[in-house]
Design a protein around this nucleic acid. Structure first.
Lengths: 334, 334
DNA sequence: TAAGCTTACGTAAACGTTTACGTAAGCGTG
DNA sequence: CACGCTTACGTAAACGTTTACGTAAGCTTA
């Protein structure tokens, strides 16, 4: 048997309004009746029905989060941050994994709209017009996480891919390298192009830019297999490379694996720096030097911003999170 | 402006009941009015309010999932499986990460109860009396995932830790090893003791059991750092070891790292087998031989079972999932 | 053609809350 | 002591659906 506020009211000989007031601690009752009501609640083990409450208050204390993949460490860290602040705000988070499919994404958005979520965090992917328009119609606050929108003005939190990549390349240069290659994860406008551009700019600023970009191999995604597959191609077109910047830790792990298989020693023969600082970077052999994105912190910031928008109504400012080079064992000073 | 069924009814010149019937495609209207109503819905962009619906139907199409940690690959894979079948069932999943804290867990359960979730998946941790009693009171179906309860009769899906560990040890034996060590992740009844016991039994069945268990080091958790820290201790108390079974891939990664640091070559000097087959196992250098838990598949099974309970009302049977040795490069045939 | 059945609806209550509004009692004040 | 104010409630509508029940029209059948 699950009890309702009416049961409580009846047993405490008060009206449901009074019980409700006590539950939401608003004024309007004596200490005595409060005690009585609380006692009845305790006895029955009554717990309010958030669905009914949501119906009248038009607030569900639930937010939605969209991930392209939910089983990666990347998403996991973001989610962990989001979840922790949501929980502190007495809210729950519904996770959706879109598998980078537009139709799936739209289906999730409809689902979330029907559920009347309070707000939405959109991660890692590019915010298409279709998504944005629909979210506008939903009328819920939106924040972008680990992505941004050049087209629409939507608050976001991320690190600057451009600057972080610039830093990575400069780091290699400072270590004395001049023949520096890169394996990128794609040409998208979020994590693809900016990382390539940042990398190129750093080389350019040090007069190291090759003419035909034979030092860059553009892969299709940011995964391990892609890194492993593409390393030999890069090596062929840029054979005197002494250092390599990979646009993700997974790419770096793949490249490293391919390298050792053909007898290249890391870091003696080739220095490698990754991007993300996922836990695997620490566990790599040798441990991977990489540029850190504070993913969990980013998740927290995004969620905190979302709740602030929810509570105060004003817009949140975009946040560029600091990145940082984590020095481990895969880069050698020449 | 967000529209309600009343708006639709008014514009279509029918009652809300008719609109509702059309929405839920129940009988009782002509094709003509159906077309009219659908057209109005389309024009307004009306979407039903799942909260209101949930209130009357007492079904929220939402399930809850409890994880000790949400940012690990382990949880990620489970979640991915769960989420995919939930989505196929038009349901959403609320994730909770308990941080292995009892009070947090109880708080989450209360939250989920107030939200009136339809069902619950509890993963990786031991199901305490307090949790179980409360979940019983909630009156929602429960399935255990990657854990089980000796105490209560609750459906679960997991691999047999005992048998999987037995297999791992036997595999090493078949490869000609006789001095086999183990680093365990703890003494809990779920993944701790059974893995140790399975391991010991395999050695015993081949008359290889050391007397004082000097070949086993019991760590505190299943993490990388623990593996790295404990490997030297194990080596000291069991110095002629030629093969090592680690109770998780993370432990194995840590042990491997510690080993190479002191000049031990994998697999030439020491063979290592892990447990889980997380993505990092493949990315390790050399790639880690390990026993696979089909985590995503397990998540799917658990969710599918939960929905079956929800729909048909009958109990689900426990499922022991098959495990499998994934041969890679860290075990040498002696 | 009268009786009964089917079809296509509409009416209104119900789900479990919150909250605007009303009100009676008690109190202080001039 | 009449008046107004405060306190401590209760009443009932509202939130947006679903659904049991009622009913009128049309059709079938004997």
């Amino acid at each position: 048997m699950v009890y309702t506020i009416k049961d409580v009211a009846k047993l405490a000989h008060v009206s449901t309004a009074t019980v409700s007031r006590i539950l939401n601690n608003q004024p309007g009752y004596s200490e005595k009746t409060k005690a009585k009501v609380l006692q009845v609640i305790e006895e029955l083990g009554y717990e309010p029905n958030a669905i009914a409450r949501g119906l009248v208050k038009k607030r569900t204390h639930t937010i939605g989060v969209l991930f392209p993949s939910v089983s990666s460490l990347f998403s996991g860290k973001l989610l962990s941050g989001i979840e922790s602040v949501a929980h502190a705000k007495e809210s729950s988070v519904i996770v959706c994994h879109t598998q980078e499919s537009g139709s799936k994404t739209m289906k999730y958005l409809h689902l979330l709209n029907e559920k009347r979520i309070d707000g939405l965090i959109f991660t890692s992917e590019v915010l298409k017009d279709e998504y944005y328009d629909y979210i506008q119609k939903m009328g819920v606050p939106l924040v972008l996480l680990a992505t941004e929108s050049p087209e629409f003005q939507v608050p976001y939190v991320k690190v600057s891919d451009y600057q972080a990549s610039y830093s990575a390349a400069r780091y290699l240069i400072e270590k004395g390298h001049t023949k520096i290659g890169m394996i990128s994860g794609g040409d998208d406008m979020i994590a693809g192009t900016p990382r390539i551009e940042g990398f190129k700019q750093a080389l350019k600023d040090h007069a190291l830019l090759p003419i035909n970009e034979e030092n860059i191999f553009r892969g299709k995604d940011f995964g391990y297999k892609e890194g492993k597959k593409n390393f030999p191609f890069l090596l062929k077109q840029f054979s005197n490379m002494t250092a390599l910047f990979c646009a993700s830790d997974h790419l770096a792990m793949g490249a490293m694996s391919a390298a050792v298989e053909i007898g290249i020693k890391i870091p003696e023969d080739l220095s490698i720096i990754g991007y993300d600082n996922l836990p695997i970077a620490e566990m790599a052999n040798p441990p991977l030097t990489t540029v850190e994105q504070p993913l969990e912190e980013m998740g927290k910031k995004a969620a905190a911003g979302l709740f602030r928008m929810l509570e105060s109504g004003d817009e949140m400012r975009a946040e560029i999170m600091p990145h940082q080079i984590i020095e481990r064992k895969t880069v050698q000073h020449l």
